[in-house]
Design a protein around this nucleic acid. Structure first.
Lengths: 212, 212
DNA sequence: AAAGTATCCATATATAAATATGGGTAGAAT
DNA sequence: ATTCTACCCATATTTATATATGGATACTTT
């Protein structure tokens, strides 16, 4: 593996950071200004980065950089569709969940290439799904849909309140089931499915201890 | 909320997709070519997108676009540092875990602004942590470190094999503990901590129906 | 000693790309 | 009827940006 010099590494890092900050890559001149050297010199460095396989660029295209390997030598995965989905907060009964002012944060999420679905995230409260390994404080990622199969974990509206439960359905009827022996199934109340849980996330270590 | 026309929406979506595909935003001409209309017209559309608060751009800068609200009207979070971390596969005893050819995939991950730590992901095999809500097939995200506190869930090397366990330590000694009553603690074997589990992920909906 | 590589400079030129200007039509809103 | 907005055209001009060229020094490798 072709390894980078310090200068090359710093330039590659700058391109990455600039792109992240501005949403578009730098020009040769931007880089030259940053490092207080001339464009001609930057040309040399860029050429080296290309030769060593860290950077690609399109001829004659402004800001036409594409990083293909990071400074630690790890290939950048390509064609991965990642984005942010909103994390909605709890809502009092009757209020709309999907309101812009009910967004408590965002969660990074890798979209399944195919689906053109809409996703969102919710924080789980309570212990009712503990036997399915879903704990209080966990975050679930949900695909919006109004139908689901027997056994799916779903977000349902019960009395205008969003809740996480397991969907049960047979030929006769559908109902919601908790995963905790202390709770009983919800058999005879109307509910509406608003999405299916497709992923679970649990963060440890929220207040980061200084490592000794 | 200012809502977009169909054309404006399609153009905003194109800018987003082009940027994702190429790693740099399109020029006005790129957009004009795509929609088979002239640059002058694109100027109008871009101006409308700016006026309605979906798009920002820097004057006189090539490809100087920055999307600030997506087509569904959701604000784009800014300054979030997300990237991909490698998902390593299982290794036979004695083989190095962190080899480039042992990368089985990538996982999107939001970096904690501060930390300059190195992270990676591993798939959990076995039921030994089931009482901590960590199941076979789950993915753990790990921060590389060689120290950890009592109660932390860690990745440890035991006989050159990586395993997920809970770290126990008192004044006298440190040992590894499973979270499953069928397993007993590992008291008298040497081990080495290689990282601390900071996040858990579980994907549902992967073809196979989840157990019960 | 010669060749290569990494670092740097200055400057000219070609091309990419944004901007400016002035015009047009159709339909909705006032 | 008039104004506004969304949509479209053509073309000239300015500015941003990449590229080309030819040089230099210090250092390591051959």
């Amino acid at each position: 593996m072709d390894t980078l010099t310090k200068k090359q590494k710093r330039i590659l890092e700058f391109i990455e950071k600039y792109t992240k900050d501005n949403s578009y890559p730098p020009t040769l001149k931007d880089i030259a200004l940053k490092f207080q050297i001339t464009i001609g010199t930057i040309q040399d460095h860029i050429f080296a980065l290309q030769r060593k396989g860290y950077l690609e660029r399109k001829k004659d295209k402004a800001r036409g950089f594409k990083i293909i390997k990071t400074t630690d030598g790890i290939d950048k995965p390509h064609g991965v569709d990642m984005g942010m989905i909103p994390l909605y907060g709890k809502v009092a009964a009757g209020e709309p969940i999907f309101a812009n002012d009910n967004i408590n944060g965002y969660v990074v999420f890798e979209k399944n290439a195919r689906g053109h679905n809409i996703h969102f995230a919710l924080e789980v409260t309570g212990e009712s799904m503990i036997d399915s390994g879903i704990y209080d404080g966990d975050i679930v990622i949900v695909r919006k849909q109004e139908q689901a199969d027997d056994g799916d974990i779903v977000i349902a509206l019960l009395d205008d309140e969003a809740t996480v439960k397991k969907l049960r359905r047979n030929n006769i009827k559908a109902y919601l089931e908790a995963s905790n022996s202390k709770y009983k199934a919800i058999m005879n109340r109307p509910f509406k499915i608003i999405g299916k849980v497709i992923e679970l996330r649990r963060k440890y270590d929220l207040l980061q201890k200084q490592m000794l």
